[in-house]
Amino acid sequence: MTTKELTCVVCPAGCRITVTLNDASAIESIEGYTCLRGKTYAANEVTHPVRTLTSTVPVMTAEGKKMLPVRTNAGIPRESLFEAMKIVRATAVKAPVHTGDILVADFIEPGTNLIACKDFE
């Protein structure tokens, strides 16, 4: 049995929610939430927390090196953020590049991509 404490981010109330997991890492109980959305948030956050990663990579343009903002097109597991940053740091692109262009396919997880967030001609 383990318990996890978290702050709900669904609304400004910021309820403190306690989730208890059994030895098989299944949810035993959720306490402290004050609405159903909070309960759902807590369940997801404890079993499979994901985050959108945003960063920058260098882009070579006619006017020299600029920074291109990038993001994952879906959430990646929270525990892989630093591993993901290693791939981001090894990435560099050349203009032209456009918003939505896939820079790294199957990024961390199959079907998730690292995409460009700005246009450089």
């Binding site: 959108t52 945003t54 903002p69 993001r71 967030c117 700005k118």
Partner: peptide, 22 residues
């Protein structure tokens, strides 16, 4: 502002700052 979270009300999706201004 390269982080995500812009545009949930306007565009119904979570954009980064450069995408929103773009």
């Amino acid at each position: 502002c390269i982080h995500a979270g812009f545009g949930l009300h306007r565009f119904g999706e979570e954009l980064t700052g450069p995408e929103y201004s773009g």
